[in-house]
């Protein structure tokens, strides 16, 4: 056990000595932190918007009901709020809520005219896309893993140490296993 631990500690020290790897890991951590934080604040904003809309919708509806008393006008002038509230895990995967509207007010009459209404977000921001945890996982994590692993064996070979290391190491895993484990944890 202590032997294994010693291998791991050694590899950790190697890793930490390569400053650019440390910078890479720190940056990745900051990125995923930012993704989660912005996802959370986006979800909170959406929930607040829904609450505000609900309140405003209710006042509007009461106004209309006081103003008109025939069925036709009531149907024509009252709008019905519909929305899809973000799920509990939505902060991690914001999905395409910036492109597809998730709130709408419907009217019972004059349906045709309502296809020309939509609640669009800022198009230039939508074009750039959003960073959420799923994006970090699916698009960035593989790239970071490639960067960490791409020279696992090759770096030793170019430094001319590879054969020496392989012949002196007690076992295959003591050398590469420890290195792989450490980089993977990183």
């Amino acid at each position: 056990m202590s032997y294994l631990l010693k291998q791991l500690v050694r590899e950790w020290r190697f890793l930490l000595r390569q400053k650019y790897l440390v910078v890479l890991l720190v940056c990745t951590f900051v990125m995923s932190g930012f993704a989660v934080y912005s996802g959370l604040s986006e979800v909170t904003q959406q929930k607040q918007t829904i609450e505000r809309l609900k309140a405003a919708d209710l006042t509007d509806l009461t106004n209309v009901q006081h103003k008109y008393d025939d069925a036709g006008s009531l149907a024509y002038y009252s709008f019905h709020l519909t929305y899809s509230s973000p799920s509990n895990l939505a902060f991690a995967a914001l999905g395409e809520r910036d492109i597809y509207p998730w709130k709408h007010r419907l009217n019972l009459l004059a349906l045709e005219g309502q296809i020309y209404e939509s609640d669009a977000q800022n198009a230039e921001l939508a074009q750039a896309g959003k960073i959420d945890f799923v994006f970090v996982l699916s698009a960035l994590a593989p790239l970071v893993i490639i960067l960490l692993f791409h020279d696992l064996f090759a770096s030793e070979r170019t430094s001319g140490r590879h054969d020496l290391l392989v012949t002196t190491a007690k076992s295959y895993f003591a050398l590469w296993g420890a290195r792989i484990t450490v980089r993977f944890i990183g």
Binding site: M31, F34, S38, S41, E42, Q45, T49, R52, L53, A56, D60, D98, P101, K103, H104, R105, E117, S118, D119, A120, Q121, N122, E124, L125, A126, A128, G129, K130, I131, F135, A139, L140
Partner: peptide, 25 residues
């Protein structure tokens, strides 16, 4: 890859704009 997205996310969080439905009230 990251910066353009960080930029747009920051912009929409820092300057929240009310959607059309909300301003329609």
């Amino acid at each position: 890859i990251v910066m353009p997205r960080v930029a747009s996310t920051t912009a929409s969080t820092a300057v929240p704009s009310a959607g059309k439905i909300e301003t329609d009230f």
